[in-house]
Simulated scan of single mutants.
Amino acid sequence: MKLERDRGVAELLRALPTCNKSERLQFEVNLLLLISDSETSWETKHGCLLAAKALIPYLNLDDEHDADFVHRMKGIAEKFLTDIEVRVRTAAGEVLGVLCGKIGPAVYQECKEYVLRLIQSNLERQVADDDDGSKHEQLETEKLMEKLAGPSQRRNSAEAAQIFHDTAGWKNLETSLKCLQAMIDGCGAFFQPFVDDDLLQLIFTTLTHTNRFVRETGFYVCSSLVGCGSSDQGMHN
């Protein structure tokens, strides 16, 4: 349950400042075992990503075990940007953002091509009926409609399809944009050298997208770009 995961993160944040190295290393091992299991549930993936997000700021990058954990978690988070569950995709992007804050723009450099390609390839995507992710999202939309309006509403497939198109159905686009925003925020002023015409044109395209959530997220990315451009933190480090 979400409440349990949130409570677990809160307890972890209280424990991390005082835990010793051996406890932290064992926790890293347990996280990697859980999140790497192909049979693990989306809830477990989500919880592990939230835990990694909390843990990363406390790692010592000069320690080979911590450095290995960071390397493996970066690859896992990148992979989960296309997970079927939106909450896993969102948390994966947040982990990459925290890694940018911990390590610096090198993380963005390594992920840049993949993340920007995800955004570009999904910008004009048609919702495919045979896509597992789309089927999952549409089923969740229909379930929500049934809860809100009663069982009869579910039979109106045309209305369900329209709501699906307006509120979901764009697969990885919104969460990929949120990942980009998290990495921009993580890099801060160090992101400035990566702001070029290609990136700006890509983001500006999202501002006129048919999906209102995509447009909203695009404006948030613009806000982060303005923030990194107006910050002088990188000039003093």
Rank of each mutant, 00 (worst) to 15 (best):
K2S: 14
E4L: 12
E4V: 08
R5T: 11
R5G: 02
R7Y: 09
L12M: 15
R14C: 14
P17F: 11
C19E: 15
Q26E: 12
N30P: 09
S36R: 00
D37H: 00
S38C: 10
E39A: 09
G47V: 02
A51W: 01
A51N: 01
A52Y: 00
A52L: 02
A52H: 00
K53A: 08
L55C: 03
I56A: 07
N60A: 03
N60W: 00
L61W: 07
D66L: 04
D68T: 11
D68Y: 03
D68C: 02
M73P: 09
K74G: 09
I76V: 08
I76N: 11
D83G: 05
V86I: 05
R87G: 01
V88Y: 03
R89N: 03
T90R: 09
A91Q: 14
V98Q: 06
V98K: 01
G101K: 07
G101D: 14
G101S: 11
G104F: 01
Y108H: 01
E113Y: 02
V115S: 02
L116M: 13
E124V: 06
R125I: 13
V127R: 08
D129G: 13
D130K: 12
D132L: 08
S134C: 15
K135M: 14
E140F: 15
K143S: 11
M145H: 04
P151Y: 09
R154D: 06
A158D: 11
A160Q: 04
H165A: 07
H165C: 12
D166R: 00
D166E: 13
T167A: 09
T167K: 13
W170N: 05
E174T: 10
L177Y: 03
K178Q: 13
C179Q: 08
Q181E: 15
D185M: 10
F190Y: 07
F190P: 04
F191S: 13
F191A: 11
Q192D: 05
F194Y: 10
F194S: 02
L199G: 10
I203S: 11
I203Q: 06
T206H: 06
T206F: 08
T206P: 10
L207G: 05
L207N: 12
H209C: 10
N211E: 14
R212H: 15
R212I: 15
R215C: 09
R215Y: 01
E216F: 14
Y220A: 12
V221W: 05
S224F: 04
V226D: 14
G227I: 10
C228D: 01
Q233C: 04
G234C: 10
H236Y: 05
